[in-house]
Design a binder for these strands. Structure first.
Length: 648
DNA sequence: GGCGTGGTTGGTACA
DNA sequence: ATGTACCAACCACGC
């Protein structure tokens, strides 16, 4: 074998600093070195990616490409527009490749894809080098050290992680890069499977993603939004390693902030500047190394003279949660992203459940509209027209900017699922997947399960109030007024409950609180779509019952649909289900098609109301509960326990 | 195996 | 205004 001819395949690691895989590639001392990105149709068409995240990705690629060129004027990030599975076998031959190097990706789809590429490499006699670099600890190792089980609590991470070893110290960025070899393309492009296009609805012009392997100009350049068919992004947040490292520098320079950060004490209502670091999208795209972040923060903490905060609430603790979700995903695979077939996700008979293909055991991306009322609530939630200004402000910020504070995510997630609409967490996760610039499959699925009390967290009677909770952070309602400007002039005392404002106040503020929020109208803000406290109680009753029944996503009864019998008479269970035979089945027949909110649906009126009478006593059964009541008298919350202990 | 304790980030009533 | 007790009863963990 001659000298190494190496392809470095960038994917989850759009950076030069602290990249174990890049280091391994350069240690081969290559005679030719191609830094490439393959434009995978799976991401282009089958992942939900909104324009803000597209732009962020392009930012990262452009920054990386120019950083590569700074190290070697003959090199850059070469964008190859074809699926890696079909492209690599051709490249291996055409470029006489000896090594393929990339960072390990433990996402379920990525594992399948990489296994296929690896097989092709072996067939072509190409050595594949894979290094873990996306998390503090290798996610497979983490699960292994957690007795081979998915990491489902932060204490498991804190116990299992150190068993692997110390968190690796960051590796400096390379000072030079070898020349790329000649780039020949003496082969045909395999056209992508462009249907279905999950992002079709946001494309405003022709999609030229796959015009040629080397792009429209034939120069392997990073695409533009126009090429991809997208309108301009609206987010103020920008990608790229350069920006990420500058942001980190700024945070680190503020020693007190860095050392005393406590997530639960950061305001979800803060804007310009936000209360948290906003580094999450950079961690997602790898424009910031998670270990770089960890050790820079730890350095400040170690030298801090005051009392530093501790994991899990501290800045480093935030990263432990990320590793926890990656460790759970590493074990559970595809099932971690859905309820069905997920052994660790509780089954709750939510509205709008996912359709599932029982052959592949995967969700299809579509869902059942078991309740027109729930579908209406879902659309109003998604587009920020629930009539609860706190929820609407957050959802509008999310759509516009691609980022909202972690506690804001809690608030909208609780509201959609167990603390309001009783709609499947999977619906919410899909919206976040599309709109978040920091969307990380593992963290998104994990956090939605957390908030919906289907995994990780169980205290379902703790519900975020859309009124009391934001009041605690922002009495004036400045945050709401920024993102729901039609309420700008409204007296702050009504800002979280505008339906309570007297007509005179509404007039003075130039806004009328009326209507059902289905269509946007100048000078109108909708009435709240339900009585929150009423819904909260109904939801808690439903959760109680579902917990008592105790099914999980992989239970036979959940898979074959017989779970239904267990929930008969339940307020938020399948009360509508009498006419809805196969809630989880592959083809339930004549569901409505999922509609965009822009459709004008005139005639939804009488037929819509949901049967909520069944709320009567869903979980409040009999006397058996009474016996146990006398047994357990302690305060139920951590805080209470602390208070009691310290008082004694 | 039963028990006690704790759980990243709640809400409400009342002093 | 701020602090405290309670709400209704979950799971995970450790001994």
């Amino acid at each position: 074998m001659g000298n190494p001819r190496v392809i470095y395949w960038f994917r989850t690691d759009l950076r030069l600093h602290d990249s174990p895989a890049l280091k391994a590639a350069l240690e081969l001392n290559p005679e030719a070195f191609w830094p490439i990105w393959t434009w995978d149709p799976h991401y282009v068409y089958r992942a939900r990616v909104g324009t803000n995240r597209w732009q962020f990705l392009l930012d990262c690629q452009n920054d990386l490409s120019s950083s590569i060129t700074k190290l070697n004027k003959n090199s850059k990030l070469f964008l190859m527009r074809e699926a890696p599975q079909t492209l690599f076998p051709k490249l291996f031959k055409a470029w006489k490749i000896t090594h393929l190097v990339f960072e390990k990706d433990t996402d379920a789809y990525a594992r399948d894809r990489d296994a296929e590429v690896k097989r092709a490499a072996e067939e072509a006699g190409v050595e594949v080098i894979i290094r873990s670099g996306r998390t503090l600890w290798d996610s497979d190792e983490l699960a292994k050290k957690n007795h081979g089980k998915p990491t489902m609590s932060i204490s498991q991470v804190q116990a299992a992680g150190p068993k692997i070893g110390k968190i690796p110290k960051p590796i400096p960025a390379p000072k030079s890069l070898p020349d790329p070899g000649e780039i020949t393309l003496e082969f045909e492009q395999e056209p992508p499977e462009a249907k279905p296009d999950f992002n079709g609805s946001s494309r405003s012009q022709g999609d030229r993603s796959y015009e040629r392997i080397s792009g429209p100009s034939g120069d392997f350049a990073v695409p533009t939004m126009e090429e991809l068919g997208f309108p301009a992004a609206t987010s103020p947040h920008h990608g790229g390693e350069t920006i990420a490292l500058e942001m980190l520098d700024k945070i680190i320079a503020n020693e007190k902030y860095t050392a005393t950060f406590e997530k639960p004490n950061t305001a979800p209502t803060a804007f310009e500047p936000q209360a948290t670091t906003l580094l999450s999208p950079h961690l997602h795209f790898g424009s910031l190394s998670v270990r770089e972040f960890y050790w820079r923060v730890q350095g400040v903490v170690d030298n801090y003279t005051g009392t530093a905060s501790q994991p899990p609430v501290s800045l480093t603790g935030q990263i432990f949660f990320r590793d926890m979700y990656f460790g759970a995903q590493a074990e559970l695979g595809y099932s971690f992203g859905q309820t069905l077939y997920n052994s660790h996700c509780r089954f709750i008979p939510w509205h709008l459940p996912s359709k599932v293909d029982h052959e592949t055991k995967l969700v299809t991306g579509d869902y059942h509209i078991d309740s027109p009322q729930a579908e209406e609530w879902f659309q109003r939630w998604k587009y920020g027209r629930t009539g609860f200004p706190w929820i609407d402000a957050l959802m509008r910020q999310l759509r516009q900017e691609g980022w909202i504070h972690h506690l804001g995510r809690h608030a909208v997630a609780c509201f959609l699922t167990r603390g309001g609409c009783y709609i499947s967490w999977e619906r919410g996760a899909e919206v976040f997947e599309e709109w978040l610039i920091d969307h990380e499959t593992a963290c998104n699925a994990g956090n939605w399960q957390w908030l919906s009390c289907t995994a990780f967290f169980a205290q379902f009677y703790r519900c975020y109030s859309p009124v009391a909770f934001p009041k605690k952070w922002d009495k004036e309602g400045k945050f709401v007024k920024r993102y729901v400007p039609e309420l700008n002039e409204l007296d702050s005392k009504y800002i979280y409950e505008p339906w309570k404002a007297p007509i005179a106040d509404q007039k003075r503020a130039g806004v009328r609180i009326q209507g059902d929020g289905k269509v946007e109208q100048e000078g109108i803000y909708p009435k709240s779509m339900f009585d929150f406290n009423e819904r909260r109680n109904i939801c808690i009753d439903g959760m109680k019952k579902a917990y008592k029944i105790g099914l999980y996503g992989n239970d036979a009864k959940v898979i074959d649909g017989t779970w239904r019998k267990l929930f008969e008479g339940d307020a938020e269970g399948p009360t509508e289900g009498n006419t809805f035979v196969d809630a989880m089945g592959e083809e339930a027949g004549d569901d409505e098609k999922v509609q965009s909110d822009d459709d004008n649906r005139e005639d939804r009126n009488g037929a819509v109301e949901e049967d909520e009478r069944g709320a009567k006593e869903a979980g409040g059964e009999n006397n058996e509960g009474g016996k146990r009541e006398t047994k357990r008298k302690r305060g139920q919350g951590t805080l209470d326990a602390h208070v009691k202990i310290s008082k004694r």
